[in-house]
Design a protein around this nucleic acid. Structure first.
Length: 806
RNA sequence: GCGGAUGUGAUGAAAUUGGCAGACAUGCAGGAUUUAGGUUCCUGUGCCGCAAGGCGUAAGGGUUCAAAUCCCUUCAUCCGCACCA
């Protein structure tokens, strides 16, 4: 009989579904059954119109293998799937084709579901979550109201990132190299009134709590870098205008070397000082030029420092008492620190460049470098000079000393600063969760009462965005016009919607209790299932979704909704799949691989196997059509071994026993460590072994059990042919006997003077004397050491012997 | 510039963490069976050499009985952040 993967795969997918084999038990049932729980999570996809990409199966198959193994080990496993369906591509498609985004979404989800089922994933399909479902986004809105209630959501007018193509604002995290993360269009700065979430309030906890988590190191590092904690001091400088200019510095020790100051072009004090400034026209021109530039342009110009001196206002260095000039310049960012710096050209590269260009004095306050040539920025060596009471101190002592001095004089304090900024949370688009807020002239912003949630997204005629920076919802006057929940007077609704990242910030909680209409999930289910034991997802979400969802989770923990302060115990990340040409897959390059084609030609089991065999799970890997064939060939070989029912007992055969035990150990360990490629190599080697030495019925049973997480359909079919009990996917994961994994005879490498010269075979765990005797008896070795004295012998048990001769 | 990685056959990659480099697969070569062909099964395949043997993990140096693995220098590639005070 032929290995008819089309028939087999469909047959078993239907059986699994009909029998609800992968349904997770709820908390109560799980506790009654006395099972340990395992919550394995993959990032739910955005259901795009293109359908499943070949990149999707990599993380999904990996976690599917892990989930399947956990079930076989007797865990109550929650392995859910859902759809992150709000977002721009669907909206843009809807605009272009004059259909409702909800209809497009429905169609896309149906397609994705079909494709995911085609690959045989063991998702619990009864728990599907769709972020655009009002029963779901009701709770997304509810969380927003809670954030507002606790003062963590606020509306503020500020310069924000504006995507010129999407025509909406972007969060900081969504701007990559000055362009829009999603569409690649230019991002410019616009002053807009936006809903903001105070993620900065959680900055320190988001860093600190990484400590106890089993996240891959690069995720931790990237999050820490993004949050960007730095410690230093805030220092107050009096100005001749009679006010105070505050700066943040990480080098308060260099205060004596501050010879001028720089404020960002947007700094509020500049407006205040304008009447005192003699060169106001020049200053204004510089401000306008800066405002016109995009962030990208501003950084591009960075190499060449520009700026204008504020003629008429000066600051006073608090330690020296000297009056020093103030400049405005692009190189100081309005959004970091206080938007102003004290410039220490002797010990900061940027200040040094600026001082050179403008002919400002450069004073050495830390000895050890040559400030004539360049700024001396080393913080570890060097001794304070030209610094009054700091002279002779080390940098770290000087920091402590000056901070104490500043505190005593009321001129400053120790300060921690973060690069992280608050999360811009409004989008001027249609296809997102409406922000449940109402503007009342009398009462200000008033939240939509909880019992009126969900605030449904109304139907509109036209989803087209406007360049005015308003959401399409703004045109719906009959929807926006409402009454104030507080005073009953006329009021208008907020017309912006939430960003794509809102729905995904808590979806993993909903999976634990997806049909609950009383709360976002019951506390019992949350207590049982959370935190997520293992979450795999893309590196590109490290400073977006992953950070946002940790923030929301911490907030929900603080208000007592969830039982843990962190959502995910373990985070791993997969590498990207490139095209055969080694380039990123894209339609324009024509190197896109469609999973449907592979399944059609080779079957889902082959695709699953190949995508895991392709290489190190964490690394990017190019697609190879040839290697796919190799995996199909392997499954054909498996099929040939077991296509007719074997007779005999279910014991391992004496000849294969060692290999089987070794395979059980290796495959199990490899799955736990996501080394799927070597796990599959082990299975291939085992099959090769079985071609050499006739396997018993028990050998085949072991093979099918180990294979079933990787290639579940063929394993199930052969399991049935062999007449083994139940389903392969419900079989117990086999145990191995350590003593049986060892071979009776060992081949030992024999080195002379550290170079491999021969090998000898000795019994397992042979003692040093036996090995030495065997080595000396070896023909090649005896020749080599003849007439020489062995001055040293090194034996590594079961591995090698090294003879040092003279 | 800062931070993080990575560099092994023709190709994708292994190497129990300092102990026989190249498992497993692809490709290629030869053979067998079958015979109209992305069939199956053997065998070979790091490089030089007829061989004995020698040389090999980006390059160079070091530590060690022993280095792909540890240390130093250099080069290359990738990723993240980027005037962050």
């Amino acid at each position: 009989m032929k290995y008819d993967y089309r028939k087999i795969e469909k047959k078993w997918q239907e059986k699994w579904e009909a029998q609800k084999v992968f349904k997770a038990m709820d908390a109560k049932a799980g506790k009654v059954a006395g099972l340990k729980k395992f919550y394995g999570l993959v990032e739910f996809p955005y259901p795009s119109g293109e359908g499943l990409h070949v990149g999707h199966p990599r993380p999904y198959t990996a976690m599917d293998i892990i989930a399947r193994k956990k079930r076989m080990m007797g865990y109550n496993v929650l392995f859910p799937m859902g759809f992150d369906a709000f977002g721009l591509p669907t909206e843009n498609y809807a605009i272009k084709n004059k259909v409702h985004p909800a209809a497009v979404t429905k169609k896309n989800i149906a397609r994705f579901t079909e494709q995911l089922k085609m690959l045989g994933y063991s998702f619990d399909w009864d728990r599907v979550v769709d972020t655009t479902d009002p029963n779901y986004y009701k709770w997304t809105q509810w969380i927003f109201l809670k954030l507002y209630e606790k003062g963590l959501a606020y509306k503020a007018s500020m310069p924000v990132n504006w995507c010129t193509s999407c025509k909406c604002v972007l969060a900081n995290e969504e701007v990559v190299n000055g362009v829009c993360e999603r569409c690649g269009a230019e991002v410019v700065r616009r002053e807009k009134s936006q809903w903001m979430l105070k993620i900065t309030e959680y900055a320190q906890r988001l860093i600190d709590d990484l400590e106890g988590l089993d996240f891959i190191e690069r995720v931790k590092i990237q999050q820490k870098n993004w949050i960007g904690r730095s410690t230093g001091a805030e220092v107050k400088f009096e100005t001749t205008a009679g006010d105070t200019l505050r700066v943040f510095t990480t080098r308060p020790d260099t205060l004596f070397g501050a010879t001028y100051m720089v404020v960002s072009p947007e700094h509020e004090l500049v407006k205040k000082w304008m009447s005192l400034i003699n060169n106001a026209d020049e200053v204004k021109a510089y401000q306008e030029a800066a405002a016109r530039k995009s962030d990208f342009e501003r950084t591009e110009m960075a190499k060449d420092k520009t700026g204008v001196k504020l003629d008429g206002v000066r600051a006073v260095n608090p330690v020296t008492g000297n009056e020093i000039p103030i400049f405005i310049s692009d190189y100081v960012l309005a959004t970091y620190g206080t938007g102003a710096i004290m410039a220490v050209p002797g010990h900061d590269t940027r200040d040094w460049e600026f001082a050179k260009k403008f002919g400002l004095p450069i004073i050495e306050v830390v000895a050890g470098g040559d400030i004539e040539k360049e700024a001396f920025t080393d913080c570890d060596t060097g001794v304070m000079v030209n610094s009054g009471f700091l002279n002779g101190l080390s940098i770290s002592d000087a920091k402590a000393r000056i901070i104490q001095w500043l505190v005593d004089k009321g001129l400053g304090e120790e300060k921690v600063n973060y690069k992280l900024r608050d999360w811009v949370f409004s989008r001027q688009r249609y296809w997102g969760e409406p922000i449940p807020m109402i503007w009342c002239e009398k009462c200000g912003w008033v939240p939509v009462p909880e019992d009126q949630l969900p605030l449904l997204l109304p139907d509109v005629e036209n989803y087209e965005t406007t360049d005015t920076g308003e959401s399409p919802l703004a045109a719906l006057t009959e929807w926006t016009a409402t009454t104030c929940p507080k005073c009953g007077g006329p009021a208008t609704r907020e017309t912006d919607t939430m960003p794509q990242w809102a729905g995904s910030s808590w979806y993993f909680l909903r999976y634990t209790d997806p049909h609950n209409d009383k709360e976002l999930a019951s506390r019992e289910e949350l207590d049982y299932w959370t935190p997520v034991d293992w979450y795999n997802g893309g590196m590109e979400h490290t400073t977006l979704h992953l950070l946002y969802s940790r923030f929301w989770h911490k907030f929900l923990y603080d208000i007592g909704v969830v039982p843990t302060s962190e959502p995910y115990m373990k985070r791993t990340s997969h590498g990207m799949i490139l095209g055969e040409d080694g380039q990123k897959m894209s339609k324009s390059r024509g190197n896109v691989i469609n999973p449907n084609d592979i399944v059609e030609e080779f079957g889902a089991d082959t695709l699953r196997l190949y995508i895991m065999f392709i290489g190190d799970f964490e690394k990017t890997a190019p697609w190879s059509s040839n290697a796919v064939k190799g995996c199909k060939r392997f499954l054909d070989r498996v099929w040939n071994l077991a296509e007719t029912r074997l007779s005999g007992s279910e014991d391992y055969s004496p000849t294969n026993e060692g290999a089987v035990h070794r395979a059980i150990k290796k495959v199990g360990d490899d799955i736990d460590n996501m080394k799927f490629n070597t796990a599959i190599a082990t299975l291939m080697a085992l099959v090769n072994e079985f071609y050499d030495k006739q396997p018993s019925r028990g050998d085949i049973k072991a093979l099918l059990t180990l294979l079933s997480p990787f290639a579940p359909h063929i394993a199930e079919e052969l399991w049935e042919i062999q007449g083994f009990e139940g389903l392969a996917c419900q079989a117990a994961w086999p145990a191995y006997d350590e003593s049986k994994t060892l071979e009776a005879q060992r081949e030992i490498a024999v080195q002379v003077g550290g170079k491999l010269k021969s090998t000898v075979t000795v019994p397992n765990d042979a003692d040093d004397e036996t090995v030495l005797a065997a080595a000396k008896a070896d023909e090649k070795i005896s020749k080599l050491i003849a007439g020489k004295e062995i001055i040293r012998t090194i034996v590594v048990k079961n591995k090698l012997i090294n003879l040092i001769v003279r």
